[in-house]
Amino acid sequence: MKNLTIWVILGLTLTFLIGPFIIIIFAGASAGEALAFPPDGLSLKWYFKVFTIESFRDSFLLSMFLAIFGTLTALLLGIPAAYALNRYDLPGNETIRTIVAAPIIVPGIIVGLALLRYLVIPLDFTVTLALFMAHTALVLPYAVRVVSSSLNNLRADMEEAAVLLGCTRMQAFMKVVLPNIRGGVLAAFILGFVTSFNQVPVSLFLSGPGVRTLPIDMLAYMEITYDPSVAALSALLAFMSLAIVFIAERLLGFSRYV
């Protein structure tokens, strides 16, 4: 009886988690002209069509750019921040941690609106720059947290040993700390990449002529054209995310860090 309950709960969970994914795969594989489930016959034409839609190509490149460089920048800022928060007993340590976590807590739509209202409009920041800042800020909390947790497992005396063998503090960091938190840094990169790539609310306000992230572009596309190409693209993106996480798990036991 107890076993049965567990199986039912497990089944429902999987249905809700994986169900939408399966629906999207099939909706995209429709032979018909309108988005529908069950699909109107099966074909791969919409999967190929996706690659011919020019605005998708541009917004894909923008999203890739934001995800890669936004995450790299977040790591560049986040690794030293995590290191300082871990190794030094700074005054206001807790406050700093809270502020760093703010972009996760504050609703994205407010972050987007604020950037638009206070940077893009009055200061003439380009939308791309505002998007870049927004994505960096959004990824930063993950970078700090994941790197922090791998720094926690690294004893401080290792750096002292390196210093006594002749390293400067900077050399000790580069030669001893960094190689030992490599897994955490990679995990933070992947988590950041996926978060940035899939992120909608912040980017909602930050779009201009020809400048849209892929998820926003897909929303816009659907308002005009209700065909299965969006489902096909969604399925492709889901596969991409899955592949990244799968490879990461294989290479470095990603789930340890998240």
């Binding site: 004893r155 005396d157 290792m158 002292e160 040993a161 390196a162 210093v163 006594l164 063998l165 002749g166 390293c167 400067t168 001893v176 190689p179 030992n180």
Partner: peptide, 19 residues
Amino acid sequence: AANKRGIGLVFQSYALFPH
């Protein structure tokens, strides 16, 4: 500075570099 003193220290925890 510690890195200029030419002193060796063997830590209780050894502090080897695991990588």
